[in-house]
């Protein structure tokens, strides 16, 4: 355990320094990511205004807060896509990773933790600029902030493991882009990425509650913009932990069964 911690620390440090070298590239990448939520923000704010100031309990200020928090959560949601994993299996890139002393998962995880650090650093000025441009309304409060931080970390870990587990499908078939795209399409609609959950029809909200997507995206945002009461926040953290456990089981089972089928194509 101690060893693992030391290795993680070193790997995160190296990857962070590596990533910090590409300053302009990082900035462009982040700026690009900011544009998508601005489209939704403009759309829903226009609606709120035509609706007499608010829509499903969201005022323009709430919506601005939602989509600015969105930009941070979106960053923390980035994971090794199943497409990436599929490519490793198809082209044999997984083979050298298997020869290393640790499970490949740890190297990936460390790299993505580093990405979180760099991304958050770069996000700060962008967040400030968006704040100035759209004047969001946040309730503030230390407790909210602490719970938000917790839910943000959990959303990252939970989605990372879940999406990694999905990648295990590639051990059985490498024609999977259709499955993955369907997964991501459903995620886009039900996670709160396209639209705050409260704006969905009732039945869709019920579905969203029992699927993992909302808990890795919309939930942390709803925490920070003050849409949830304390018991709801605590329950949400619990559900995140629950999905993390489910994802871990899926991943371990999928990996153990799949790795036996892996035949190192092309390496």
């Amino acid at each position: 355990m101690r060893l693992l911690w030391d290795i993680y620390r070193k790997m995160v440090l190296t990857s962070t320094l590596e990533m910090l070298q590409y300053r302009l590239g990082n900035l462009f990448w982040l700026l690009g990511m900011v544009f998508e939520p601005m489209i939704y923000l403009v759309m829903w704010s226009a609606l709120a205004n035509e609706n007499g100031g608010s829509i499903a309990g969201y005022t323009a200020g709430n919506l601005a807060a939602y989509y600015i928090a969105w930009t941070l959560v979106r960053q923390w949601n980035i994971a090794l896509t199943p497409f990436g994993f599929e490519q490793r299996v198809r082209e044999g890139g997984l083979t050298p990773l298997l020869l290393r002393p640790l499970h490949p998962f740890h190297y990936d995880m460390a790299g993505f933790i580093a990405m979180r650090i760099v991304g958050t650093l770069y996000w700060i000025p962008i967040g400030v600029a968006l704040w100035w441009l759209f004047s969001p309304v946040y309730p503030g409060g230390w407790l909210t902030l602490v719970i938000f931080a917790l839910s943000l970390v959990l959303s990252f870990v939970m989605r990372f493991v879940l999406v990694y587990a999905l990648g295990m499908v590639s051990f059985w078939t490498t024609r999977v882009s259709a499955i993955f795209n369907l997964y991501f399409a459903v995620e886009t609609i039900l996670s709160g990425r396209l639209v705050p959950q409260a704006l969905l029809p009732e039945w869709a909200q019920r579905i969203a509650n029992v699927l993992p997507f909302r808990w890795s995206f919309g939930f942390p945002i709803e925490v920070i913009i003050g849409k949830l009461a304390l018991p709801e926040m605590v329950l949400g953290l619990g559900i995140q932990l629950g999905w993390l456990a489910v994802a871990t089981v899926l991943f371990v089972v999928g990996w153990n069964a799949g790795i036996k089928r892996y035949s190192a194509v092309g390496a």
């Binding site: 302009l24 462009f28 990448w29 544009f35 998508e36 489209i39």
Partner: peptide
């Protein structure tokens, strides 16, 4: 990265 940025901004065209 420039292309990616352009592409992202272009999605506002919808």
């Amino acid at each position: 990265n420039i292309f990616e940025l352009f592409d992202n901004i272009a999605s506002a065209g919808r």
